[in-house]
Design a binder for these strands. Structure first.
Lengths: 141, 141
DNA sequence: TATAAACCCGACTAAAATAGTCAAGTATCA
DNA sequence: TGATACTTGACTATTTTAGTCGGGTTTATA
């Protein structure tokens, strides 16, 4: 079980953005340099973030991105959702009305994975961007 | 972020085993049929479980596997460990003494992933095989 | 008004991981 | 001695990931 780069990068980039967007839009080029993430890849990620209205774009020279809402109102859940970073534990759910193994009952461990998903999602639900940058600036090395 | 089949299968198979191993060893063939998991793949998984002393093998006809300890004493952590299903969130840790981005500091989100790992591992630490089959037989559909 | 900085978009691709399969054993019971 | 079941290691197809690439369009500013 691992987190993908897309999700990690999205959070890193937004945390960076949240720190620097006080007045002017922040360009992906700057984020790319500061965070060490490929510019092309960042564009893909921000395209998704924009569609889910987490950021707004400003085109043209001196353009870039700004947060659509306050950092406090952007939960990690929202971010992961936007970039399709989902917590997937069971295959079971896919198969329409049947149970997990093609049988008519839930598989032995079905409830376990459900609980796990909830457990993880709860973590993401409780954290927002503001928490993130606060914690970080306080505990900087 | 997703759980791999290896981890899911290991837990499913052990839950199955825990239910049926009262007296005799349980063959992988039976588990394969009941749980719908490829026999060859199960063999790989049980090889690992045996090396970590979670199960014991009984060779020959009427052979199979039995649990090495009581279901109650097998935590999910142990199972995941055995089959190399780890919770990986950060790349950061790999690079020896440097920080995350090749810089000398931790990346903005480093602490977040640490917390997440702990959060998930805590879940696995608290659950054991016995919990699993109890819950399940109680709530069977 | 030309130019450069930036966003925008879709197609493509290399590498890694996953989820197996396959083949050739060895041990044990009946 | 045959059948059942574990043991081991190598091989492989598929899928996912993590990008790259090549073309745009928009807009501030010199």
């Amino acid at each position: 079980m691992k987190l993908t780069s897309k999700g990690r990068y999205a959070v890193m980039a937004l945390a960076d953005l949240a720190r620097f967007d006080n007045l002017n839009p922040v360009s992906l080029r700057d984020i790319s340099l500061r965070q060490g993430i490929s510019l092309d890849y960042l564009e893909q990620i921000f395209s998704k973030l924009r569609k889910k209205e987490i950021v707004q774009s400003v085109r043209g020279t001196q353009g870039g991105y700004i947060l659509s809402k306050k950092a406090k109102d952007i939960k990690l859940t929202n971010i992961f959702d936007a970039v399709d970073e989902k917590v997937k534990t069971v295959q079971c759910k896919k198969e329409s009305k049947k149970g997990c193994n093609g049988k008519s009952t839930k598989c032995i461990t079905h409830n376990l994975w459900d609980e796990l998903e909830n457990h993880i999602n709860h973590f993401f639900e409780e954290k927002n961007l503001e928490d993130l940058i606060k914690e970080n600036t306080e505990r900087r090395i």
